[in-house]
Every structure is written in structure tokens, then in C-alpha cells.
Design a protein around this nucleic acid. Sequence first.
DNA 1: TATGAATGAGGTTTCATTCAT
DNA 2: TATGAATGAAACCTCATTCAT
Lengths: 208, 208, 208, 208
Amino acid sequence: MTASPPDKRRRILDAAVGVFAQHGFYNARVSQIAREAAVADGTIYLYFKNKEDILIQVFIDAMNEILRRQEEGLVGITDPITRLETFVRVHFESVAESRALAEVITVELRQSSKFMRNTDMKPFGRYLGIIARIVEDGMRAGLFTDTIPSRTVARAIFGTIDELALEWAMGGREDSLPEASRVVTHLFLSGLLKRSEPNVSSIKGERS
Amino acid sequence: MTASPPDKRRRILDAAVGVFAQHGFYNARVSQIAREAAVADGTIYLYFKNKEDILIQVFIDAMNEILRRQEEGLVGITDPITRLETFVRVHFESVAESRALAEVITVELRQSSKFMRNTDMKPFGRYLGIIARIVEDGMRAGLFTDTIPSRTVARAIFGTIDELALEWAMGGREDSLPEASRVVTHLFLSGLLKRSEPNVSSIKGERS
Amino acid sequence: MTASPPDKRRRILDAAVGVFAQHGFYNARVSQIAREAAVADGTIYLYFKNKEDILIQVFIDAMNEILRRQEEGLVGITDPITRLETFVRVHFESVAESRALAEVITVELRQSSKFMRNTDMKPFGRYLGIIARIVEDGMRAGLFTDTIPSRTVARAIFGTIDELALEWAMGGREDSLPEASRVVTHLFLSGLLKRSEPNVSSIKGERS
Amino acid sequence: MTASPPDKRRRILDAAVGVFAQHGFYNARVSQIAREAAVADGTIYLYFKNKEDILIQVFIDAMNEILRRQEEGLVGITDPITRLETFVRVHFESVAESRALAEVITVELRQSSKFMRNTDMKPFGRYLGIIARIVEDGMRAGLFTDTIPSRTVARAIFGTIDELALEWAMGGREDSLPEASRVVTHLFLSGLLKRSEPNVSSIKGERS
DNA sequence: TATGAATGAGGTTTCATTCAT
DNA sequence: TATGAATGAAACCTCATTCAT
């Protein structure tokens, strides 16, 4: 038994992540992806429409995985504060599993213009939506200030965690992510909470 | 007529911004930049080493301009709170002047910083440095909490303003930037200030 | 059920005719032929050596069929004039049965004969031979002028009927072939007969 | 002086004729055409849209040249008989100048399907039109029988001369074309003329 | 016989860059 | 300085064919 065949799609995606991270999407060679995935060049086109489609699938798969984790991690948690803390922590924990994947997601994604404009960005929209919903829940609960639009806050949070993930992926300190998690939580909770005492607690009572 | 020769560099850069914004760096054609700059293809190579050099110069010029504005805007202001407010406002005001330039800076820069490591990325470092210095000044003055590393805060602030600028550049509401300015200021001041009352004032006393 | 296995060869050939007619030999896809024949791609290679072999077999089968019809149609006819009339009529009647096949034969054959030189192109030679023999018989019988070489006349006749078949196949009037038959017969008999009266009769006494 | 540059188009076309004749359109390599034209591969695409466009231009150029010769050759000739004789002679004289070109025109043209269907086939239509007009003039003058449609006769004549040109191009006797000319003239004049005596004269009073 | 997933050679075409004018 | 015709390297992708099942 030579292994279950349709892991080929997976092998190609994994190889692609490495090659994209190493050279960038446009300088990546399909033939190198094939070589590293140990398949023939043509085989790639049995699983993907073209080179860009590989990048898109990398993204979609990664987003679906992190969405799954977020939904799993948030299940049963109702307190908006804890939900936000959890969300940020799960994000960085997920990112931490692969520097290469983190790099591809943060760096390559932005400038695959066709991707940014034409493709099904729903996974990304859903991700923003999760953040926004947490914020809105906190507002409705009277915990968070409602003088600022939740969509913008969601964007701000995403921009921050994305930037810190990028820094780490591009060669930041190996252990910078837990700290990043703590800082982000502190900063945004401070900005959102109506009462300010929790700031301190939130920064103290950090997990682990 | 000894007219206007060295405005050619400028014309090429301006054309490049438009073309890069329209197609992305890798899908941009040097010949299109030449056409839109009304110069011959070969002329471009009298002013720039190669295609990538155009992008680098676009970035450097833009960064130098915004650095100039920041330094100009911050001159004479000593209060860390006002300095941070000013910094954020100047950033968005600068960004607001050209959607195309904003798009190139936010989208292409990430990719570039990967391949321009050797290149002069100091302007970006200086920019982060300005933010960090404002934060550190606030900490030293006892205004900002010093339980979080200033470099990380600087990155967080940059990530946020970059993301909001990106959203606007990629087709966001025409007037979203002033609001973005207000939200960012509020969020980060709340996170940084030891006392929380200023939150309210900072969000109220916003200009226009 | 021991059903219908070797009709697969037939199914493949029929599908090939359609696909070749639709796209031309070089733009035809073996996989499309397989699909339209309802067999797997690999199955084709159990019946044919390669793609070109399919075309060759299409041609050989078609030629053998038309040769069979010609031999059957000409049996018992001895008068060279009637033989020529019959030959032309049978040719167009055969052609009329399938536009697609006619197109493949007329269009692809030329190209092929160039690359199938080594291949069995004898059927085509036999076909020319039949025409030439009819002409020679007429010459020997003193009916046809013998001042022109029979091989050239045979080529001329073939060129004419092939062109008219091509015109029809490529979208000519549905009912153009009977008229073509009449015109060809008239033209060449006029050119061949020593006396010219038959022209009139030949053109009048046309069938149906 | 290194020669006038835009003979490059000509050089490419000439090289293409040779390569197409040698390998057939689909097996011809653009790189070989470039090599034989002594230009870089990319240069070809400054003069032609793509590979197929080269074939189309070969055809259009050749047709325009032969049309020019026909119009020049027929000028001042009014007698339909002489006009037809002249047309056929000029055709074969033109064809005789390049076996390779003759082969490309007769063989490759038919199955460049896109060409046959989409392209501007007007040159070919004009060519058929010239023949048809000669025939119609003869009919109007009462010389030719008008019991057969001139368009069909034109097609027949074209089919014949095309087939004989093909035979020569594909390796026929070096001197077969003059004879072909004589035979075609004889055959079709016999078929067209109302009186039959001219047959003899036409075949005797051969050109020059 | 039949399948169809996998192969991998190889061509057309693009486009950044050069250089003779 | 300026031009733009010419260059030529190089990559994506197709698709006929194979072969393990």
C-alpha cells in the first residue's frame, strides 16, 4: 500500500506554501512545487486550475481551518471579554503552527490582485464578521463603548494581529506571538471597555 | 527650449503608481508605464535601474514625503497624547491624497519588503521609530502604561492604520478616513493611558 | 451478456469523425473522442496505435467503403460514358451521407497524405486508378480523345469532385451535390468525347 | 548600410513558407522559422499576432500576388476563350515559382480551420470571382453554354488546377505544369463551348 | 479488455532590458 | 538624453500516451 492517493492535493498545497513563502507567488515555479510535492508538473493541473488557483486554495483551506478553530474555541463562551481574549489567542496559536503559511497568508495574499478583487473572499469576510460580532455583543451587553463602529474596530483588530503575525513570520523572535496576544488583548479591551479597571486585570490574568 | 527634462523622473513615478495600482507590480508592464509617462521604454532605464527599482523609488519618495509631513506636523508639539493624535491624523490625511498611491504602498509594500531586504527599507524603520518614540515619550512622562513594549505597540498602531488605509484604498467609503483617524486615536490612547478619563475627551475633542 | 464489444472500434471511429470535423485533426482531443465514444481514454489505445492512426483508419475505412460502392455500382456496366457518369454519381451519393465524414476526408486528407507517405495510401491510389481506367477504356474504345494523359484527367476529375464535395461539406447548399454530379459529368464528358453531340444528351438524360 | 530593415517581415514569411512546407503548420516550430529568418524568436511577434497569423499572411500575400498577376495578365484581353486560357496559364506559371509556397497554399490552407471559417477569405472569393466572371462573359457572349451555373464551373476549374498544382508541389514531375495547363484548358473549354470544333484548335493552338 | 490518474516533454508567447542610432 | 526595434530567456500549461489496477 503506497498510501492513500488523494493526499496529493494536500502534498501539493503543502509544497506550494513552502515555495510561495520562499520565493513569493510570482517568483515561485510551478515545477518546483511539483518537485517538492513529488508529483509530475502536469499532475498539479489535475487538482488546480492554474498557479493562482493553488494560492487561492492555500488561503481558503487555511481560513477554513482557522475558522473551524475559532468556532470550536469560542463555543460555550459568552462573556464578550473572554471571547475577545480567546479569539486573539486562538489566532496567534493557529498562526504559530507554520511560519511559512503565516507568511504566505499575510504577505502574498494582499497583492494577488485578482484574488483580492474577484475571488470568493467570503472566508475573510466571515473572519471579520466573527470579530465584529464579538464587539457588537459586548456593546449590546453594555460592556463595550458603542461610540465607535464595530466594523471599523474589527478591521483595526485584524490589522493589528495581521501585522504582528507578519512581523513574526518574516523573522521575528520565535516567542513573540504570546506576547503579541497579550498586548493586543490589553490594547483593544482598554479601548472598548466602558470601565477601565479591567485593563489591569486583563493584562494580569493572562492565560498560562 | 531647455524645458522640463528632469520632471521625467516624476512623470515616470506618477505613471508607475497608477499602473502598479491598476495591475499590481508583477502584472504591470514597463511599456505601459512608459506610455502613460509619455516617454520611450528605454528612457525609463535612464532614470531607474530596473522595474523593481521603480517600485522602490515610489515607496521611498512616498515615505520621505510622509516622514517630512509628520516631522513638520509634530514640530513644537510635546504632549504625547497630542503627538499621537497628530501622527494618526497626518497619516490618514497623507494617505487620502491618492487612492492609487495608498493602494501601492499598502498592497505592494508587503511583498516588496520581502525582496528588498537588502534595499533601503530604512524609511519604513524610521516610520515605526517615530511611533515608538511617541509611545516611549509618553511612558517616560508617566502618562502611558509601560507594561507593554513600545515596539509592539508601534507595530500594532501601524498595522491598524495600514489596514484601514487599505480598506479605503481598495474601494472603501470616500469619507472613511477621518472616522478611521478618530477610532484609531481613541482605541490606542485608551490602551495606553494610565488614567481612563481622557478617552472621552480624546474622542470628543476631535477636530472637525 | 457477451454483448457488443468490438463495436467499440466503430464507436471510436464515428466519434473521431465528428470531433475531427468539428476541430480539425490537430485541435481534436483524444479525450473528447473517448468521451463521445463513451469509452475511457486508455481504451482507444487498445484499438489504435495513436491519434494519427485513428485518422488513418477513418480514411481507410471510408475509402474502402466508397471503393466497394464504386465496384458494386460499376459492375456490369461497360460503356465508358455510363461508367464515368456512374462513378461521379456514386461518389457524390456516398459523400452525401455524412457531412462530417466528407469534411474530414476532403480537409484532413491533404495534410495527412503528407505525413502518411509511408502509410497505406494505396486506397487513394486505387481510387485514382479507377478513374484512370475508365478514361483509358474510353480511349481504347475510340470514344475519348487520347491526346491527353489519362492520369492527368483522372487527377482533374478527382480535383473537381473533391472541391465540390468540400464546398458542400463546409456549408454549401444542402442539395448542391446532385447538381454537382450533373455538371461534372457534363464538363468532363465534353472534354473527353471525340464527338460533341453526346454533351447535350448527357446533360439532358440526367437521372432524376 | 545593413539593408532596409522592414524586409524582416518578408524574411519571416519566406522562412515560414519553407518550414510550413517541410513540417506542416502544426509541426512547424516558431523557433525554426525565427532561426531560418535569422531573427530572434520574439521578433516574429512584432510582425505577426501569432503563429497562425503567419500562415494567414503567407496566404494573403500569395493570393494578392497571384491576383495582381491575373489582373495584369488579363488586361486588354476580351475574348473569353483567350481569357480562360490565360487565366489557367498564369495560375500555373505563378505556382511554378515556388514548390514550397504551392505546397503550403494547397495543403496547409484547407485545414487551418480557424482560417477557413473565421478569416477574411475575400482574396479566395475574389479569385473564384475572376473565374466565374470569365465564364459568365463567355455565356453572355453566346460562346459558352449557359445550362450550367457559372459558380459551380468556377469551383470545378479551381478544384482541378488546385489538385494538379498539389500533385506537382508534392513531388510531381518538374515539368508537369505546362502540360497541366494545356489539359485543363482543353477540358474546360470543351465543356463550355457551344461548338465543339474549337476543342481541337484550343489544344493545338497552345499558348505562346 | 477496460479504466483513468498520472506522467512529463516541450512549444508558444511574453516582456524586461539593451543598444545602435 | 532619448528612442524603440530587437532580443532571448524562461515558464505555464496542454495533452498524447502509459500502466497499475
